[in-house]
Structures are given as structure tokens and as C-alpha cells.
Design a protein around this nucleic acid. Structure first.
Lengths: 361, 361
DNA sequence: CAGAGTGACTTAAGCGCTTCAGAAAGTCCA
DNA sequence: TGGACTTTCTGAAGCGCTTAAGTCACTCTG
């Protein structure tokens, strides 16, 4: 019984035996260099190298310390769709940057068709904390997180008791966009939204349906769009609303095309993301519609692409980097055992570029 | 000593005690329902629910089974930069889809400034396998993976003994692009590349420097571009080469602008990704250059944006979905204990759209 | 009705590490 | 010179779970 038949990886004990010290000492050599003499530490490390020991097994360490060093990120779509939205990439990058000094990596849990990741996956995820990004209100994943008692940070979602939250003033932003167009004199509006209802469906939506969206940010934006429009004496039912299914550009373009095919054609399009706005811009170009003289378009996010577009996109700016960083900081604080800070709502503002103008008389 | 002061989470033992069975039975209730009677199982689950036990602790389970259920993805840049490239999103989405049935999530390790993720992070990552995506050849992360003895799948990188590999015919694709332009009659070329050398620097590159790129795919593409051009009797040093630093659109546009400012202006631009090509397209528009009559542009990847662009982008198509899926399948096979399959190189082809034409006479 | 079989649980040995409470040996100062 | 400290290292108790092997009480067969 000298060595196991299948050459197993060396462990802390093997190193300890090789050097002739206790296991605790080897552990200290890696984790608390001040607990042993420099000479012995060097000897331990040398022996480890010789044996091919690459340091404490991360899983075993996690079990002993009850810290995994990972943060689960719960998304509501697949990776490709999720990351085709620059807003997510930017937010997550900032988040990753904020938690990186603490040594936390991101464990990505993509969503399925029920507004978030599979609950079983969430229950099995090795993470110290979860970040939920714009999930449907009823997402099973959220329940799983609660069951596990995992600290939670939510982004762009309704507040969950006990969790930290950062979101933006979706409604206020949408109002800014709608008022801007109203002030320019528009009366025929269309709204292009990402998925609102369960099960990818896509297609036209009534204002009532829109306001019942499963996603809080959608609901808020709808309310923000429709409020000022209604206040201006335009019937909500005269506002065309279209939900896209999925997040691909093709689908978005098809939806935009459907909206623009309506008679009388809307003169202003309110888009819930810059991606949707850019898709609309592309469709307008295909149809030979001049933007902004034939059609005004307003986006949301102020993603980098909004500024590069031709014409530059008028859009509601939100500070994505700040949002991600804040979420990351909240995560770190929760991990440090602090209580959840009060929810933060970031302000937005309207960036007027060249995609909006008064409608043709 | 009835209960610990800080209410700790219930464990398998607590449930076992509550029901009055052994720990193994509770474990079986979760993992091997056929090992106990349906009645007892229901009772166990009921007790678990009552105690607030949400199922076996993932970390402890991992330690016992020596499987984590996560796949580490090693990237060479930060998240924002990484995901601003649709090629990565698409590949990773396909990869995630392929490993999902096995219950594997992706643990994302973004890169720093040394061509890959920090080695310490890699050593500490809780994963069963690593996927390296287009890292620099010497990336410390790769060494860390080897030390750990973790199975490895590399994408678009040199072969690592013992690991699986999928890549595309970068050189062949680049040759197709160059030949296409030569056949159209171009003689003044520029090449726009992503980062090649260590430490983000950006700026003009000599052909020698270019061929020493730290990234295999870059080297191959350079070779593929320059080969046919040289064969056509054009001196390599007459080809303008520019490396961008980072991956943001702004930086890419600045690089493109610099190339187009050269006198005499190149008539054809070879871009190592569609993102770079689209940035070039935007610059050309700003400069009032007509594409393709004043300037031909060829991209690489055939990302979705290539088709939407106006004009449609001529580009080298690679099957990103297939690449990701294949990598995922290889991962699954390695996890099943199979030997590394032989490396696969996917074919590419040239998609000719409207961004290339003969140069103005 | 003995012996083989089967179903339903339990026992106990890990998985590889951290960490706290000592122990042993040396240092310091009155 | 001897008690009070330090420094350096060890012992051992977990962390929460899986799983191979074993026990025990039955049910079939021939």
C-alpha cells in the first residue's frame, strides 16, 4: 500500500509528510506566512513544487472556510442574447472590476425560458452571493436563492427584502424621452420593447398588457412613456406597442418593420434599448425613411453605439459603469457581513443627438 | 448546547435526525431515489422543507464527489472588451449550450494585462475543466492549468499536449481575403489587427513584429495576408500594419483613421475581425470615402453585424456556433475521462458582399 | 422449510483543508 | 535565576457530503 494505483494528486498531507511537519504548518505556509519561520516555509514550498502540489485544493478550502470566491450572476437569457446587449457587458465588467480585488470570479448562469436560470442550477451553484440582473419578477431562480439563504444583489428589479438593490430611474427616463418627442410636436407614437410576457412570443401589445410586463424595468418604462403621452391627450390605444421575442438584431428589425408598416405611420419611435433603436434605424434606412425628418427615434441606455450611429442617437443615458460598480460594492459589503444597504436608484438624463426632430408638417 | 447561537443553516444530519434515519438515507433521498422507499423519501423531503434545508451543500458535495460542475473560461481581456466582440458571445453561448445538459455552468476568469487571467485566480478557481479562449501563447494562466492538472480545451490557440483543441483555418481565411483583393486589382494594402504584442500598446507594426505576435491566430492571419501579397510582387514593408490596443470601438476607429491618413492612401483594408471592419467603415463614412469605390474593406468572422452593415461587409466566414459547440463537446468528453480527441481545424470561406470592388483606376 | 435472493437502511471511511487551543523551546528582564 | 512572554509548530476537531460494504428482515423457490 505504498502508493495508490492511479496516481492521485498530492495533498497537503503528502507535502507535510515529505517535509516532516504537520499538516497545519503546510497550510500556514500558504495562508499565513507569518505563522512559521521563513526557512521552513521555503522548505515546504520547495517540497510542494517537487511533489507537483499546486496549492490547496480550492473545493476543500471552500468547505473549510465556507467561502467559494465566486459570485453567481443570474441572467434572463442565453449568453449570446445577453451579451449582444452592450449594456450588460459594460455593467458586468464594472461589477467584475469591483469584486475582483476580493478575489471573486463570476459564475454565469444563463436563463432559460422562465425568466431566469433553472432553479436546480441555482441550488447547485457554488457561490457566496448572487447577482440577479433584470429577471422576471416571478423567476424561480429568485426563490431558489432565498431558499439557500444566499446574499443577493438585484439590478433593475423589484426590491427583494434583505437584499441590496441598484436600479435606475426607468420611469423618469422614459418620461424624459416621451416629453422630448411631445415637445417636438409628435402625436403618432410607437414603442418597441424587449420581451415582456412569459414565453418568448413577440408581437403587438395592448397598453394593458404592456403594463403587466413581467419585468419591472419594462413596466416602469411603459408607464413613463405612456404617462406624458396620455397627459397630452393622446389615447393610449393609439400608441403602437410591439414586443420583440429574443434579443437578436434580426428579430428586432422585423418588429420595427412591422411598426413602421402601420398606417398612418408613426412619426416617433420610443425604443427600450439602444440596440432596438439601432435596429429601427437600420430598418428606416432600408425603407428609405429619413431620420429624423420622416421618423424620430429615441433609444435607452446610451450605449457606446448610440454615439457612433449615423445619425447620432437621441437616447436616455444611464450610468452603466456606475451601476455595475455599485452592485459590485454592495456585493462586497454583503459578503463582509454588512446589512443590505438601502436601495439605490440612479438618475438618468436625456442625451439629444440627431435622431429626433419635429415631425414633417 | 441545544442550538448554536448564530442560527446556522441546517445540514443533512439535521434532517436525518429530524426524521430519525441515517445521513446516508437523506443523501439518497436527493441523489438516488431508487435506494429508499417512496414513502420515506417523501417524509425526508417534507422534513427538509420544514427545517429550511435546501438540498445538499454544493461545496461539500463537490469535495465528496470531486466534481464541481463548473467550467472555467479563461479570457484574455476584461469582460466588457471580451463581450464587445460578438464572436466570443456566440462561441461561448454555443459552448454553454453544449455543456449545459451535464449541468455545467461557466466560471468566467477575465484577463489582465499579461495575456490571460491571473495565475493565482486560476489556481483557486473551482472548476472541473478549463477552456482557454485565444490567450497569448505564454499566458501564465496556461501554466497554472497544467500545474493543477486540470483538463483543458483550447480555442484558437496553439496545441497544448494532452488538451483538446478547436481552431479555424486562420491562415487559409486570411489568404482568401488577400487573394480576393489582389484579384480585384488592389496593390495598396493596410492591415488592421487587434492586440498582438504584450502590454497594450497599439500603433504601427512592421511585418516582422506582426509575425511575432503573441497570439497564434494573429500570426496565422498575418501570414495569410502577407503571403499572397508578397507573392504578387508587393514588398511586405509597403503593407501598412496597425495594431489596436484594447478592443473598444473608439480605439479601433482611431487606428483606422491613422491608416487612412497615410499617403498614398491604401485602397484595401484587411481587418482581423468584423468589429474592426465596421469601425473602419464608420471612419470611411466620416472621411467621406465611398466604400467600396474609394476603399475596399474585408472583415473576419462573419458576425451578424457584417450582414447588416451598409454596405454589407465582405468577410471571412467562420462557423462560430460550430466552434463553440465542438469545444463544449470536447469538454464533456474530457470530463467523462476520455482521452483528448485530435485537434480540429474548422474550414472557413469568403463571403463576398458589397464592401469590396476594384480600386479606382 | 432451508437457502438463495431482494429491498431498505445503516455504518463508517473518506474527500482535503482550516483553525483554535495548546505545547515546547527560546528570550527577556528584574 | 525564574516567571512572563514570544515564537514556532502540532493535535485534533470540524466543514457537509458521498458511497462501498454490510446488516437485517423478508419473500420466494424447489
Amino acid at each position: 500500500m505504498v502508493t495508490s494505483p492511479r496516481r492521485r494528486r498530492p495533498t497537503l498531507d503528502d507535502v507535510a509528510d515529505a517535509v516532516g511537519v504537520s499538516r497545519a504548518t503546510v497550510s500556514n505556509a500558504y495562508n499565513r506566512p507569518d505563522q512559521l519561520s521563513a526557512g521552513l516555509r521555503a522548505e515546504v514550498l520547495r517540497a510542494a513544487k517537487k511533489l507537483g502540489y499546486s496549492g490547496p485544493n480550492p473545493v476543500a478550502r471552500s468547505l473549510a472556510t465556507s467561502r467559494t470566491g465566486a459570485i453567481a450572476v443570474l441572467l434572463d437569457t442565453g449568453l449570446s442574447a445577453a451579451f449582444s446587449d452592450p449594456a450588460l457587458s459594460i455593467t458586468l465588467d464594472a461589477l467584475a472590476g469591483a469584486v475582483d480585488p476580493g478575489g471573486h470570479a463570476l459564475l454565469i448562469l444563463p436563463g432559460g425560458d422562465d425568466g431566469g436560470p433553472n432553479a436546480g442550477r441555482v441550488l447547485a451553484a457554488q457561490a457566496d452571493l448572487a447577482v440577479a440582473y433584470s429577471l422576471a419578477d416571478h423567476a424561480p431562480a429568485l426563490k431558489a436563492i432565498r431558499e439557500r439563504g444566499l446574499p443577493l444583489v438585484v439590478i433593475d428589479q423589484p426590491h427583494v427584502p434583505g437584499s441590496a438593490r441598484v436600479s435606475v430611474d426607468d420611469r423618469g427616463g422614459a418620461e424624459l424621452a416621451a416629453r422630448h418627442l411631445l415637445e417636438l410636436g409628435h402625436r403618432r407614437f410607437a414603442v418597441l420593447s424587449a420581451q415582456c410576457l412569459s414565453a418568448p412570443r413577440g408581437g403587438p401589445l395592448s397598453p394593458e398588457e404592456a403594463k403587466r410586463s413581467l419585468f419591472r424595468d419594462n413596466r416602469e418604462r411603459f408607464a413613463g412613456y405612456l404617462g406624458p403621452i396620455a397627459a397630452a391627450g393622446i389615447a393610449e390605444h393609439d400608441v403602437l406597442i410591439m414586443e420583440t421575442s429574443g434579443t437578436s438584431r434580426e428579430v428586432a428589425m422585423a418588429s420595427a418593420r412591422a411598426l413602421l408598416a402601420h398606417e398612418p405611420r408613426p412619426t416617433a419611435m420610443l425604443c427600450m434599448s439602444d440596440e432596438l433603436a439601432l435596429a429601427t434605424l437600420a430598418v428606416a434606412r432600408q425603407l428609405g425613411l429619413a431620420v429624423p425628418s420622416d421618423l424620430s427615434i429615441v433609444g435607452f441606455d446610451d450605449a457606446p453605439g448610440a454615439a457612433w450611429a449615423a445619425p447620432g442617437l437621441t437616447t436616455v443615458r444611464q450610468d452603466l459603469v456606475r451601476k455595475g460598480r455599485l452592485a459590485g460594492e454592495f456585493a462586497v459589503r454583503l459578503l463582509d457581513g454588512e446589512k443590505a444597504p438601502p436601495p439605490v436608484t440612479l438618475a438618468v438624463d436625456l442625451v439629444v443627438r440627431d435622431s429626433t426632430a419635429p415631425p414633417r408638417p
